[in-house]
Design a protein around this nucleic acid. Structure first.
Length: 448
DNA sequence: TTTTGAGTTGTTCGA
DNA sequence: GTCGAACAACTCAAA
C-alpha cells in the first residue's frame, strides 16, 4: 500500500524523518503539496514566490513527481489518500496556531487513515524543554541551557531511492505574485546546503565578531531556507558539534533563539497577536493622519535617519534585513515614532522572505518591551550611534540609499551635518533625543 | 516559602 | 578616546 507524504514546511529530501517513515511504511509514496489559499494571502508576495520556487526545486529533485493540489487541506488530503488507498499520511509536525488547527481538521477528515507526525521544523520540538516543575521557560538563557542539556538527534540519511505513485493528476505551480525588482535568494535544498557550507567554511570563524556588521557578508542568511525547511537546523547543529571557537557557540545560540520563540508561541498562541506582558495594552501609541504619514515614511525608507532608511529599503530590495538593522528599524518605529509593534510586525510579515510568525512577533515584542526580555525598558536605540557602531564604513547605507552616495565614510550617518548636503534626501522627520524622552515617559506611565 | 542572583543585542554622563 | 556607573527597579529561575 502506498503512503502519502504531505510536505509543508519541510521542502527537502535530506535529513527528513517523516520522509523516512513514509518510505518505511509503504512500497511507494505520493509526495504531495497542497496550495492552501488561506496561507497564500497573508504570506506576502516575496515569501509566496520563494516558496513556489522551492517547490519547483523539490519537484526537480523528485524527478518531476511532486503532486500539487489546490484547495482546503481538509478536502484535498483525504481525497488524495482515498484516490491511492493510502495506508497513512505522513507529516512533519507544525506547531503554529493555524497549522495546529488545520492538522486537527485534516486528521478528523481522514477518518480511519492515520495522520502520522514525525519530527518538526525544530531540533527540539516545542513543549519538550521545560523547567523541572514542568512549566515552560520564559527567559532565554535558562531555556538555552536546558535545550543544550536536552540534546537533539543526528540527521537521518537521505533516502537513496524514492518510488512514487505514477499517473496522478497534478496542478501546475503558478508563476506567483509580481514582486517588482525584489531579488530573492536561490531557492531549494541544494541552494540551502550550499549556503550553509559556504558560511560554515568561510564566515563561522569570525561570526562572533562580525555578526552585527550589515556592511559585510557576516550572517548565514539561512533564515529563508529554515522557514521553508529546505534545510533542517539539525544539519548545521550536527556540523557545529565538537567545533571549538566562539563563532560556533554564538551561531548555535542564534538557532536556539528560533527554538525558544517557537516554544513561547506554542505555549501562548495568543502572543502572536497580543502583548506577552498585558500592561503594555495601556501604552499610549500615536494615531491619526500625522502618525499615518510617519508610518509611510518608515515603510518607504524616508525617515531622514540613514541607517533606518537603508534597512527599510533593503527590505524592499531583497525581502530580507540584517538582524541588527531589524532591531534598529523596529526600535525606531516603536520608540521614535510611537507606533504599535503590531503594525511593524505586520509590515515585516508582508515583505520578508523569511517571515516566521514566532520569531517575527516575539522579536518585535522584545524591542517593544512587551516580550520575554526582562531588561530595563529604558533601552532605546539611538539610530545615529547604531549606524556609527555597526556600519562604521557607511557602506551599508550607501548601498541602499543612493541619494547619500556622495558622502564618504561614516559621515553618511549624519547627512544634516555635511556641508552641501545631497538633494533629494529628507531631513530627519523627528528629533531622536526628544522622542527618546517622550518614549521613556510613556513607558513610565504603564509601570507597576 | 523565601531569598538570591541574573537577565541577547543600549545610552549617556562624567572621570 | 575609553571606561565604569547610572539609568530604576521588574520578573524569572533556582537554590
Amino acid at each position: 500500500m502506498p503512503s502519502v507524504l504531505w510536505f509543508r514546511r519541510d521542502l527537502r529530501l535530506s535529513d527528513h524523518p517523516a520522509l523516512c517513515e513514509a518510505l518505511a511504511d509503504g512500497d511507494t509514496i505520493v509526495p504531495l503539496f497542497v496550495l492552501d489559499p488561506v496561507l497564500l494571502g497573508p504570506a506576502g508576495g516575496p515569501r509566496v514566490k520563494f516558496m513556489l520556487d522551492c517547490l519547483r526545486s523539490l519537484d526537480h529533485d523528485l524527478d518531476g513527481n511532486l503532486v500539487v493540489r489546490t484547495g482546503d487541506p481538509a478536502d484535498v488530503v483525504p481525497a488524495v489518500a482515498r484516490e491511492v488507498e493510502a495506508s497513512a499520511v505522513h507529516i512533519s509536525a507544525d506547531f503554529n496556531p493555524y497549522g495546529r488547527r488545520r492538522d486537527e481538521n485534516v486528521a478528523n477528515a481522514l477518518g480511519e487513515t492515520p495522520l502520522r507526525a514525525t519530527g518538526s521544523p525544530y531540533a527540539v520540538s516545542p513543549g519538550r524543554v521545560h523547567k523541572p516543575d514542568g512549566e515552560p521557560y520564559r527567559v532565554y538563557t535558562p531555556f538555552y541551557r536546558a535545550w543544550v542539556e536536552h540534546g537533539y538527534p543526528r540527521p537521518p540519511q537521505r533516502p537513496t531511492t524514492i518510488k512514487t505513485v505514477q499517473g496522478l493528476q497534478t496542478d501546475r505551480l503558478p508563476a506567483g505574485p509580481d514582486i517588482g525588482h525584489t531579488e530573492l535568494p536561490a531557492a531549494g535544498e541544494e541552494a540551502a546546503l550550499g549556503r550553509w557550507e559556504e558560511f560554515r567554511d568561510e564566515r563561522l570563524r569570525s561570526y562572533a565578531e562580525d555578526r552585527n556588521r550589515p556592511d559585510i557578508p557576516s550572517s548565514s542568511r539561512l533564515s529563508p531556507y529554515l522557514r521553508w525547511g529546505c534545510i533542517h537546523p539539525r544539519t548545521p547543529l550536527a556540523d557545529l558539534k565538537g567545533r571549538a571557537g566562539k563563532g560556533a557557540e554564538v551561531f548555535r545560540k542564534e538557532l536556539a533563539w528560533r527554538e525558544f520563540y517557537a516554544d513561547v508561541l506554542f505555549h501562548q498562541p495568543e502572543s502572536a497577536r497580543e502583548n506577552l506582558q498585558p500592561r503594555y495594552a495601556r501604552l499610549r501609541v500615536d494615531s491619526g493622519t500625522a502618525a499615518d504619514e510617519r508610518f509611510t515614511a518608515w515603510t518607504t525608507g524616508r525617515t531622514g535617519y540613514p541607517i533606518v532608511d537603508a534597512g527599510m529599503r533593503q527590505l524592499r530590495a531583497e525581502a530580507w534585513i540584517h538582524n541588527r538593522i531589524r532591531m534598529v528599524v523596529a526600535s525606531f518605529l516603536v520608540k521614535d515614532l510611537h507606533l504599535g509593534w503590531k503594525e511593524g510586525a505586520r509590515h515585516f510579515m508582508r515583505y520578508l522572505v523569511d517571515g516566521d510568525l514566532a520569531s517575527n512577533q516575539h522579536g518585535w515584542q522584545w524591542v517593544a518591551g512587551s516580550g520575554t526580555d526582562a531588561s530595563p525598558f529604558y533601552r532605546v536605540f539611538n539610530p545615529v550611534r547604531q549606524g556609527q557602531k555597526f556600519d562604521p564604513s557607511g557602506d551599508y547605507v550607501r548601498r541602499y540609499v543612493p541619494e547619500l552616495r556622495g558622502i564618504e565614510g561614516p559621515a553618511v550617518h549624519t547627512p544634516w551635518e555635511v556641508p552641501d548636503a545631497p538633494k533629494g534626501y529628507p531631513a530627519p522627520i523627528v528629533v531622536h533625543d526628544d522622542e527618546r524622552r517622550d518614549a521613556l515617559e510613556r513607558y513610565e506611565a504603564i509601570k507597576g
